[in-house]
Structures are given as structure tokens and as C-alpha cells.
Amino acid sequence: MFTPSTLRTMLAGLALASAAAMADEVSVAVAANFTAPFKQIATDFEKDTGHKLVASFGSTGKFYAQIRNGAPFELLLAADDATPTRLIQENAAVAASQFSYAIGKLVLWSAKPGVVDPAGEVLKRGSFQHIALTNPQLAPYGAAAVQTLQALGVYDRLAPRFVTAETTVQAYQFISSGNSPLGFVALSQVLKDGQIEGSAWVVPADLYTSIRQNAVILNKGRDKPGAAAFMNYLQGPKARAVIRGFGYGIEQ
């Protein structure tokens, strides 16, 4: 005779075994600027669902080329909305799955206090030898940096001083190491417990095209329950709270 306690234990064990049998391993290409929030969300997702995420972090432009050349990614968390749309148009991704998971914010940042003023006037003074930014051909944050400099009328003067990175992570490394005294990165990269370390100017959103970061299921993940489960999770309250906590905007 089973006691109620024993029966509950057996049912819990069966549920776990069933979840494990159905668990997926999902390959995800993630925009470099979203590395930290993704890792936190992934940990929660794996704990809550039993699915496993295998992530690669890099530039959206390079991921696009790799996907078109057959890379085995099943999900793309891009740094823009154009790349997922293009993949859909090229029949490489699932149209109905696309949505904006975050709205990125650009910041001019220095690892040292007092280098960047809160109004960004340092760009007009030009009292620095180098300024880091991501390749505008590969990364939306680099394109936004160029748009900002053009809007301020300082692009032509500062272009010879560019230190160009492949990803926002590399741009951050250039600045944090002191190889470049300042540069443009994602706000999420420099926000620690709600505070910005060093000195920074959060660039007004009207100086650059909105950085809508979209996610999409790629063809290789079309029939994977784990891929669909993560897309749903990414739109849920737990993940959205993490995304906001890293300084991103959220589409309502």
C-alpha cells in the first residue's frame, strides 16, 4: 500500500523523468551586447524547464553570414530587427516567431571617472587620441555611434581616431583596458547594480535609429519544443525583469 507521501514522491519522480526525456538542447546565436542578461536568463530557463541552451556570442553581421553558410544555430537573438527580417525573407527563419525582446541604449563611456561629461561635450572638445566603437557594418551599436557623431557634426574630425572593434564586447575591452580612453558601447555593459562605473553619457535616443533587438526561430529550430519554449520564456515576466535590470527598454 502506497502512502500519500510515497505516491507524491513517485509522481514527482515520473514528472522529472518525463521532462528529462523531452528536454531539448538548443543552439542559440546571441548578440554580444546581450551576453550578461542572456546568461542570467538562460540559467533561470534551464532550471525552470529542463531544456539546455548552448550559446555563441558575437556580432549580428557575422552570425548572419554563418547562418546563410549552414551554421547549426536554431535561434537568433540579434542586435537589430533588420537581420531577422532578412532571414525570414530569405526563407531561413520562421516569420511568425519574430519579436523585439529588447530596445538597446547607446552610451559613450570611459572606465575612468571624469573623462566623459554627462552632456557628451567631450566629443566636441576632442581632447583624446582614440575613440572605440564597433564596426558599423557588422553591429547596430556601431551604426548608432556613427549616426550620433554625424548628428553632432563631429564625425569627419573624429573618424581618424576610431579604434574599431568587431563586437561591443571587444569595444568594451578596448576601453576598460585603457587602450582607448573612451568609446561607444551598450548601456547594459556598464550598468552595475543600477549604477554606471567610470564616467558616461547616455546618448539621447533621438540621435540614432532605435536599436530594436529582435529574436527569431531559425529553420533548424522550427520543430524543436525547446526553441519554442525559450522564445515564450523570453517574453515572460521573469526574463523581462532581467532585461530591464540591465538597462534595456521593453516593447509594451
Rank of each mutant, 00 (worst) to 15 (best):
F128E: 03
A132R: 03
A145Q: 02
Q147M: 12
R157H: 05
G142Q: 12
A132M: 05
L152Q: 13
L152I: 06
E121D: 07
A139T: 15
A159K: 14
Q129C: 08
W109K: 01
V115W: 00
H130L: 12
A143K: 14
L158A: 07
G126N: 05
Q129A: 15
P113N: 01
G126E: 05
G126T: 03
L149F: 07
S110G: 01
P140Q: 13
K124L: 10
E121K: 06
V115H: 00
N135I: 11
H130A: 14
V122I: 15
P136E: 10
G126F: 03
G142E: 09
V116S: 00
R157W: 04
I131G: 04
A144D: 05
S127T: 12
A159L: 08
G126H: 01
A111G: 09
L149K: 05
L108R: 02
G126M: 04
L138G: 08
A139S: 15
G153I: 07
A159F: 04
A143P: 06
A119V: 11
Q129E: 15
G142K: 13
W109A: 03
R161V: 07
P140G: 10
A132C: 04
P113G: 00
V107H: 00
A145P: 01
T134S: 15
P118V: 12
A144Y: 04
N135P: 06
T148Y: 02
H130R: 14
L158I: 14
A151K: 14
L133E: 03
V163D: 12
V116Q: 02
S110V: 04
W109N: 00
P113A: 11
L133C: 06
A132Y: 02
A151Q: 13
V122F: 00
Q137R: 13
P118M: 00
Y141D: 10
K124G: 08
A111E: 02
A139N: 15
G120E: 09
V154A: 12
Q150G: 13
V122Q: 07
P113K: 10
A159Y: 09
G120V: 06
A144Q: 05
D156R: 10
G114E: 13
Y141N: 10
Q147E: 15
Y155Q: 12
V154P: 04
P140A: 15
W109T: 02
R157C: 03
D156P: 02
E121H: 08
R161P: 05
A159S: 12
Y141H: 11
V146L: 10
L158K: 03
R161A: 13
W109L: 01
V154M: 09
V154L: 09
A145K: 01
T164N: 07
G153A: 08
P136L: 09
V115M: 02
V107A: 06
A145C: 09
Y141W: 13
F162L: 06
G153T: 09
Y141V: 14
L152M: 14
L152Y: 08
K124Y: 01
P118K: 08
A143D: 12
A119Y: 03
P140Y: 06
F162Y: 07
R161K: 15
S127R: 13
R125Y: 12
T164P: 02
Y155P: 03
A143G: 12
A143S: 14
R157G: 02
L123E: 08
A145W: 05
G120R: 03
Y155I: 13
Y155S: 11
Q137S: 13
F162A: 02
V163Q: 11
Q147I: 14
P113E: 09
Q150T: 07
L123V: 06
V115T: 11
V154E: 11
